[in-house]
Design a protein around this nucleic acid. Structure first.
Length: 588
DNA sequence: AACCGCTAATTCCG
DNA sequence: CGGAATTAGCGGTT
């Protein structure tokens, strides 16, 4: 019996009379159940040890802390990280020890391999996207900067990370150069490290070579990458989400999602215009680690004819005023301001109401400033939490504060960027600090924070410079693997030292996005170069920490670390460096 | 609803 | 036995 999922295209023409199909489905469900149970029984340890890395939610969402981490099951063979088949490149990575040799000797093959791939035709990836909003609403006003708020950040005091570069450089001088560049930092790059990526990427062969210094002696950490490789691959293996866990979680989550949307549409007055839920966050970006235990779903309420003005000076928060009298949201309007807190409260009640029908779910206590209604449920001792996020979808051009953000031109291209900018943006009822603080007559709790989760997701999904990156016949990259590792590292360190609780996986993700903008080539991220790539990501992260600045990827004037004590940043930077220098003991 | 992409897991095969 | 090929199944698009 062929799976209904995704038969190899040859079989896709399999005959299916409906009834046969149906009964087959049922049968399959049965089988599935059986199998699930079988497996559960087979590895009882598995559910028991549910690591559930207390993860690192992005800060828009909540902080329910989870459970303990126990060492997730280790692959039976530690040394190899079986990488799923059919990817020649990946398999090369399998045996880290061999791998580095291979890289050196087999470079020509690599490059030749690239050729057919890149030439391979592929449907253009987002021609569809732009149409829907082509109506009048958009004007090129999005290209008019206006007062581009000069970014008054701490760049000035940023010191280049030279020591670190020296310590750790297992890489070529390419990187050293980059470091040196950093002194004449370009202001748009918080961590000017890789400004060179452009020139260096001209020729693949010439450039991969220097990346493999045969002898990386001059540093006390001079490490054979194989040691790193081994631990990193093993760790990645541990972070994989099990198919069963995923199936279980998806079933639960999808059920309630459907239920909520139906409820809102049918029983609610103010939210009945809700659009299709927007699944965001790491699970849906395929960068969730360890357990499918956290889900983020945004419920977009369309607003038309609204006035939106910045609140505060970093461009992340906005006051929203309805201009249309007949809006169903009128009841949340106070003093010409759409009250985020009122609206969220009401939304919360609606969600509560419809969760009554699904008693296995529980609504968690409201957290101040949190835009989500968090639901939790348990299944076989695993707690799954689902963040239901109310949001406004605004179908007009992005605020001027985004002008200098999303610097993906060299990485993903200007067309992609343009298409992104035609998409709507979202506002979530999130504030910082005390809700009763007033600014220009508006309470903090009534403001909205801008969100580009949809874009983040799309970027993560389509993260290659080449369209074929990571596709079946394309070359595999390690961007997402690097992100997973950094997230994991961060969450482990947080667990060990609660004083790091202000750091979140969104910091990691943002750092990756920034790095991708400077190391734009897919060949900069070859899967076989995992340890180097990860190291560069770490260096960048450290660099951000030491400066105390991570610019919001879309709103560069917002510093995601603004609320974090510099000493904490330094301390985390130090810890990470330590981990790196010692071959990541936390991963063991 | 059909189909495709991605990822995990299992089976096949030299 | 290890790696390649297949299967499985969720998510997303058209």
């Amino acid at each position: 019996m062929t799976g209904r999922g995704r038969p190899r295209r040859a079989q896709s023409s399999k005959p299916k009379s409906d009834n046969v199909h149906l009964s087959e489905e049922k049968h399959k469900d049965l089988i599935k159940e059986q199998k699930l149970q079988e497996r559960e029984q087979k590895k009882p340890d598995h559910t028991g040890e549910k690591p559930s890395v207390q993860s690192t939610q992005k800060e828009t969402t909540t902080t329910h802390f989870t459970k303990e981490i126990k060492s997730p099951r280790t692959p039976k063979n530690d040394l190899k990280a079986p990488v799923q088949g059919a990817r020649p490149k990946a398999t090369a990575a399998k045996s880290p020890a061999k791998e580095s040799e291979k890289i050196q000797s087999a470079k020509p093959q690599d490059t030749t391999k690239d050729l057919p791939k890149t030439t391979k035709a592929r449907k253009c990836r987002k021609d569809k996207s732009s149409e829907e909003f082509l109506e009048v609403r958009r004007t090129p006003e999005l290209e008019t900067p206006k007062e581009i708020t000069s970014i008054k950040t701490a760049e000035a005091k940023a010191k280049p990370l030279v020591e670190f570069a020296q310590e750790t450089q297992t890489q070529p001088q390419k990187q050293k150069d980059a470091r040196n560049d950093s002194t004449k930092s370009t202001k748009s790059k918080p961590c000017p490290g890789r400004t060179k990526s452009q020139d260096k990427s001209t020729e693949e062969p010439t450039k991969t070579k220097p990346e493999r210094p045969e002898h990386t002696t001059n540093l006390h950490v001079a490490r054979n990458n194989t040691a790193d490789d081994s631990i990193l691959y093993t760790t990645l293996e541990k972070l994989k989400i099990k198919r069963n866990d995923r199936a279980n979680a998806a079933e639960l989550v999808n059920e309630i999602k459907k239920h909520i949307i139906k409820h809102l549409k049918q029983n609610s007055l103010c939210f009945k215009e809700v659009e299709e839920p927007l699944c965001t966050g790491s699970y849906y970006e395929n960068v969730k680690i360890s357990n499918p235990d956290e889900f983020d779903v945004m419920f977009p309420i369309p607003v038309e004819r609204v006035k939106i003005e910045g609140f505060g000076d970093d461009g992340a928060f906005y006051r929203v005023g309805l201009q249309r009298d007949r809006s169903p949201l009128q009841r949340f309007q106070e003093r010409e301001t759409l009250s985020a807190s009122k609206m969220l409260d009401h939304f919360r009640e609606e969600v509560k109401e419809c969760v009554k029908a699904l008693p296995e779910w529980e609504v968690t206590r409201k957290k101040k400033g949190c835009p989500a209604v968090t639901l939790t449920t348990r299944r076989q001792s695993v707690t799954i939490s689902l963040d239901i996020v109310l949001c406004l979808v605004v179908k007009s051009s992005w605020p001027a504060f985004t002008q200098e953000g999303l610097k993906i031109d060299a990485w993903l291209g200007t067309k992609v960027k343009r298409d992104f900018k035609w998409k709507p943006f979202y506002l979530v009822p999130k504030y910082e600090g005390r809700g009763t603080v007033e600014n220009a007559g508006v309470l903090a709790r009534d403001v909205w924070r801008i969100s580009f989760s949809h874009i983040e997701k799309e970027i993560l999904k389509n993260h290659g410079s080449e369209k074929t990156c990571c596709e079946k016949d394309g070359e595999r990259c390690c961007r997402k693997d690097c992100l997973k590792l950094l997230k994991h590292l961060l969450s482990l360190l947080k667990e060990k030292d609660p004083s790091f609780d202000k750091f979140c996986s969104y910091h990691a993700k943002t750092t990756l996005l920034h790095v991708c903008c400077s190391r734009t080539k897919d060949s900069d991220w070859r899967a076989s170069n995992l340890s180097q790539c990860f190291q560069l990501l770490l260096e960048d992260f450290i660099c951000h920490l030491e400066k105390g600045v991570i610019h919001n990827f879309f709103i560069p004037s917002q510093n995601l670390l603004s609320g974090v004590d510099q000493r904490r940043c330094n301390s985390l930077a130090r810890r990470i460096r330590e981990e790196h220098d010692n071959c990541f003991p936390v991963f063991k």
